[in-house]
C-alpha cells in the first residue's frame, strides 16, 4: 500500500492556500507549470462517500494510474475529464473493482466506500457492485426483454420477494430513468430493439434497479445523438438527488452542465480537482488550461 505522505504533500501545494471559493482570478504566472505532476486544487471533501488514497494501477508493466488521491462527495456529480488514454476509465473501474476482471491488471492503494476498504480481502465484489453500479460507454442491454433487463439485478440479489414487488421495482426504475412512458406497453420486447438513447436509459434503469449508492458512468453519451444526450443529461441531474455519481466524459460542456466537481487527468496523473465552475473558468494548472482551451485533447 502506498504511503499517505505523498498525498499529504500533494495537499500542501502552495496553491492550496490560495484557493478560495470566491473564485478570484489566478494570475497566469502563479499557475502550476506543465512539469508539475502534483494534484492542485481541492481533491478532498468533508463527509466523503468514497475516498481514494495513493491509488496506482498497472496493466502488466504499464503504469496506467499514478498515485491518485481524491474524494467523492455525497450526492454530488463528479466529472472526470482528460485526453483520451489518460486513465479515466481505468480509475473509474477501480471504484467498483471492475478491473478485477481484466487479466494482468493490478490495483494498489486505498479506496474506501463509507469507511470500508473495498480492496480488503474480506470484501465480496458481488454486494460491492450492487452498491456501486455502473453504466458503460456503449449501451449494453442484455439480449433479453426490457423487463428482464431491469429485473435481473433485483432478482439475483433477492431484492424483491414477490412478482408484484419485482414489477414495482421495474416500473419505478424505468420511471426514474425516464423511459417508462416510452416502453410501458412493450416490456416483453427485447431491450436490444430500442434506439441507442433508449438503450442507454435502459442500462441506467438496470443499474438503479438494485438501488446502488454510487453510480459510475463511463462516457454514457458518447454513442448517442444530441437529443438522446440531452435526455440522459437531464436524467443525471435528477438522479443526483438520491445518488452519488461519477461520470467520465470527454465532452467539456457536458461536464460543465451536469457536475459540481471536476477532476482533470493527464497521462495517468490526477492534475487538478475543483468545483466545475472554477475549473472551467479559472484553471490553476497549465495542462488543465491547455485542455479546456482546446490546445489538445
Amino acid at each position: 500500500m502506498e504511503s499517505m505522505s505523498a498525498v499529504l504533500t500533494t495537499g500542501e501545494t502552495p496553491f492550496l492556500g490560495a484557493y478560495s471559493m470566491t473564485q478570484e482570478k489566478v494570475r497566469q504566472e502563479d499557475k502550476a507549470p506543465r512539469e508539475n505532476r502534483m494534484t492542485v486544487g481541492v481533491p478532498f471533501v468533508d463527509d466523503a462517500r468514497m475516498t481514494c488514497r495513493g491509488v496506482n494501477v498497472y496493466y502488466g508493466e504499464k503504469h496506467a494510474i499514478n498515485n491518485v488521491s481524491i474524494d467523492v462527495g455525497r450526492n454530488e456529480v463528479l466529472a472526470m475529464i482528460g485526453p483520451s488514454g489518460c486513465g479515466k476509465s481505468t480509475f473509474l473501474r477501480c471504484l467498483n473493482r471492475m478491473n478485477d476482471t481484466v487479466e494482468g491488471c493490478r490495483v494498489e492503494g486505498d479506496i474506501q466506500l463509507d469507511e470500508l476498504n473495498i480492496y480488503d480481502k474480506s470484501v465480496d465484489v458481488v454486494p460491492l457492485r450492487a452498491q456501486v453500479g455502473m453504466v458503460f460507454q456503449k449501451p449494453n442491454p442484455f439480449p433479453k426483454s426490457i423487463y428482464d433487463n431491469v429485473a435481473y439485478g433485483p432478482k439475483i440479489h433477492g431484492l424483491a420477494s414477490s412478482r408484484a414487488e419485482l414489477d414495482e421495482v421495474v416500473e419505478s426504475s424505468l420511471k426514474k430513468a425516464g423511459l417508462w412512458s416510452e416502453v410501458s406497453d412493450r416490456l416483453d420486447q427485447p431491450g436490444t430493439g430500442l434506439s441507442g438513447g433508449q438503450q442507454q436509459r435502459l442500462c441506467i434503469a438496470r443499474a438503479i434497479a438494485v438501488r446502488p449508492e454510487v453510480i459510475l458512468m463511463d462516457e454514457p453519451c458518447s454513442a448517442l445523438d444530441p437529443i438522446a444526450t440531452a435526455t440522459v443529461e437531464d436524467l443525471i441531474s435528477e438522479l443526483q438527488e438520491q445518488y452519488t455519481i461519477v461520470i467520465v466524459t470527454h465532452n467539456m460542456q457536458q461536464a460543465a452542465r451536469v457536475s459540481q466537481r471536476t477532476a482533470y487527468f493527464h497521462l495517468g496523473d490526477l492534475i487538478e480537482v475543483g468545483s466545475t465552475d472554477r475549473i472551467f473558468t479559472n484553471p490553476r494548472h497549465r495542462l488543465t488550461e491547455d485542455y479546456i482551451t482546446g490546445r489538445f485533447g
Binding site: 453500479g133 453504466v135 458503460f136 456503449k138 449494453n140 442484455f142 439485478g153
Partner: peptide, 17 residues
Amino acid sequence: PPSIREAALGVGASKMQ
C-alpha cells in the same frame, strides 16, 4: 461480446451467474 459480461458483472452478478 465482452460488453455483455461487463453488464452482468456491473449489476453485481457473480462470475458463475
